[in-house]
Amino acid sequence: MVGMVIVSHSRKLAEGVKEISGQMADRQMKIIAAGGLEGGEIGTDAIRILKAIVNADTGSGVIILADLGSSILSSQTAIDLLDDEKKKKVKIADAPIVEGAVGAAIEASIGSSLEEVIAAAEEANEFQKL
């Protein structure tokens, strides 16, 4: 099953997105929050994200949902630090973090491939709330 890493500047926000998307997910699915810095300060930490990716990967790949700015840069740096074989199985979704994570959790939970999970997360770009 595809795993998911939630990257946010805020530890609480990442935990919250994990909580919401976890409600929709299969219990087997690994969803790991990698928000904030080690000491809880606001920020992103590429090494923390790297560890989360490794923990979320059960062999089927990992999708990353990220919030703003350095969340993307730190996620890309974390992917760069993986070996070439693993790199191919980790992708950042170009999607809003909450809606994207929920879509990805549902898709991953039915055993879809990483590409399908990414597509499901990115469908959130089309959602209209009103």
């Binding site: 080690e38 930490d45 590429a46 090494i47 350095s70 840069l73 730190s74 890309q76 740096t77």
Partner: peptide
Amino acid sequence: LSTVGGASGPL
């Protein structure tokens, strides 16, 4: 990478 926090960390 792990302590700067902002975009200058990964950069």
